[in-house]
Computed example of a mutant assay.
Amino acid sequence: MTSLPGGSDTGASTAEPQPLVCARCGARSEGPQPTWTCSVENGTRSYLCDACARENLRAIEGRLDPAWW
């Protein structure tokens, strides 16, 4: 039988999900946030709340460096 890493048969404990923090304004999520945007820059994952994502949509879609916007 094969399973994915971290599956239930590996004995790994499931950690509590950490709240997301917006990389621009510092807003914290209280649960799943399907409207937030996830970005990977230089191998680091960061999240933007829906308000910051809307304000910077053109820069995000244009793939401009976050330092620029």
Rank of each mutant, 00 (worst) to 15 (best):
M1W: 10
L57C: 09
A53H: 01
N56H: 03
G7P: 11
C38K: 14
G7F: 15
D9Q: 01
A67N: 04
L64G: 06
R45P: 03
E41F: 04
D50L: 13
W69L: 00
G7L: 11
Y47P: 06
G11L: 02
W68R: 12
P34M: 00
A59V: 02
G11A: 03
L20E: 01
S3P: 04
L4W: 11
S46G: 05
D9Y: 09
W36Q: 06
G26H: 01
R58W: 03
A53I: 00
C38R: 15
A12C: 13
L64R: 10
L48G: 00
R63F: 04
T10C: 08
P17H: 01
S29C: 06
A15P: 08
W36G: 07
T14R: 15
V21K: 08
L20C: 02
W36K: 05
W68F: 13
T37E: 09
S13K: 12
A53S: 15
L20I: 09
T35W: 06
P34C: 09
R63P: 01
T2I: 05
R54F: 01
N56M: 03
D9R: 10
G11M: 03
E16F: 07
M1S: 15
Y47D: 15
P66R: 00
L57G: 10
G31A: 06
T10A: 14
S46C: 12
L64V: 08
M1C: 09
C49L: 07
N42V: 00
T35K: 14
R24P: 01
L4S: 05
P32N: 05
Q33N: 14
L4G: 05
G7H: 13
A15E: 14
G43L: 08
T44G: 06
I60V: 06
T14F: 08
A59H: 10
